[in-house]
Amino acid sequence: MTATTAVTPAVAASAEYPPERHRPRVTIGTDGSTWGDAALEWALRHAWLVNAGLKVYSAKTSDDHAIARRLDVYRWLNASVTTSDDSPEQTLLTASTETDLLVLGHHGHSPHNLSIGHLVLPLVTHSHCDTVIVRGEPRAVRAEHGWVTAAVGGSHDDAVIRRAAEIATRYRDGLRIVHAWPLPGPRAVPSKAEPNEVLEKARALVAKLVPTLTPSLHLVRSRPHEAVETCSRSDLLVMGPGSEPGQLSAVTRTALHLAPCPVLVVRP
């Protein structure tokens, strides 16, 4: 497909955070399904808000004219559209080495094209960059709630807080920080830190990164994977992949399947 380009938008960046090192790059894979289209719309809006370049990988099942119409709405973005003869998984994994954020719908048409439903777990597990899985209720997908939620209590809390604070600042949203404190029981894993210490450390990091941003702190008394259901009225849930290399945690897998909003998994 012929690349589609447009004039770069002049979007005002935060004077305090994040520091400008290079122009962000966003990559979206779509197959023309309902959730593929939703992921494309999410990626377009996000790229506009963070002043990023956008690259669209289109499957054979995609409607090129529909993609062109959506890009025309954001014609000031520096955007391109391309296809690949490689498998969907290989195409997007390769793309993840050259971008800052990979955006996917949580489900597609079928496993015979760029169907994200069957690729979500392997792509999020092995992606070389942050990954957003677009899912959830319509208001969250359209980013109408005005809240970004960061799930802390894992080994990648600093990266999670940094990403969440950056996006909340760019979106001009509120920041909610959630920590799940497990209920006592035979299968409960003892925490290495007191729950209030986890939240206080997160609050202190936000204060250092964005002094003008005051997060809302929430301690949820439940199993971590059950806390995913408490993230309603959020536009984005930011979390880590888990502590085991090459393997997503049970909490992250639960969020990818059940979260009521899009999920961003950081790549530390």
Rank of each mutant, 00 (worst) to 15 (best):
G117S: 10
H126D: 07
N78E: 15
G154L: 07
E144D: 08
R75F: 12
H118F: 06
D64A: 11
L123W: 01
H46S: 05
T97D: 11
R75L: 04
V73C: 01
E137C: 09
S80Q: 11
A66R: 15
C129G: 08
L102K: 09
V124S: 00
V141F: 03
E144G: 02
W48D: 09
H106T: 07
L40H: 06
S96R: 10
L77M: 10
L114P: 02
R142H: 10
D85N: 15
C129K: 10
L92H: 04
L77T: 12
L123H: 02
H107S: 10
L104T: 08
D100G: 13
G154E: 06
T82E: 13
H118Y: 10
Y74G: 03
Q90K: 15
L49V: 14
T83F: 00
H106C: 07
D85V: 15
S110F: 05
E137K: 15
W76L: 11
D64I: 11
K60V: 12
T83E: 07
H128T: 04
L119A: 06
G146Y: 14
V132H: 05
G53Q: 14
L40F: 08
D72T: 13
A47R: 14
G53N: 12
P122W: 02
G146M: 11
S110G: 10
L93G: 01
P88R: 05
T61I: 02
L92W: 08
H126W: 10
E98R: 15
H109R: 15
W147G: 00
T61E: 08
R70V: 02
H126E: 08
W147S: 00
H118N: 06
T83S: 13
P88M: 03
G153E: 03
Y57L: 14
E137A: 14
H112N: 07
A79G: 06
L101R: 10
V141M: 05
R70N: 04
K55A: 07
A79N: 08
L101D: 01
V152A: 07
L71N: 07
L49I: 14
A95W: 05
T61D: 09
L49P: 00
Y57M: 09
E144W: 12
L44Q: 08
R45I: 02
T131L: 04
S115F: 03
R69Q: 15
L119S: 03
G108C: 12
A52D: 08
V50C: 11
R45F: 01
G108Q: 12
T82D: 05
G117K: 12
A150F: 13
W48N: 07
H46D: 06
N113A: 10
D130M: 02
L71Y: 04
H112F: 14
W147V: 15
L92G: 01
R75P: 00
G108D: 09
G154I: 09
V148Q: 04
A151C: 09
G53C: 07
V120F: 01
E137Y: 15
H128M: 11
V132N: 04
L104W: 05
T91V: 08
H118V: 12
R142V: 03
E98L: 11
L101Y: 09
G154P: 12
H128C: 07
L77W: 12
G136V: 09
A150R: 13
A59I: 04
G53K: 14
T91R: 04
A95D: 01
H46R: 13
V152R: 10
L77A: 08
V50H: 02
S127I: 02
R142G: 00
S87E: 07
T125D: 00
P122R: 08
R45Y: 02
H126Q: 13
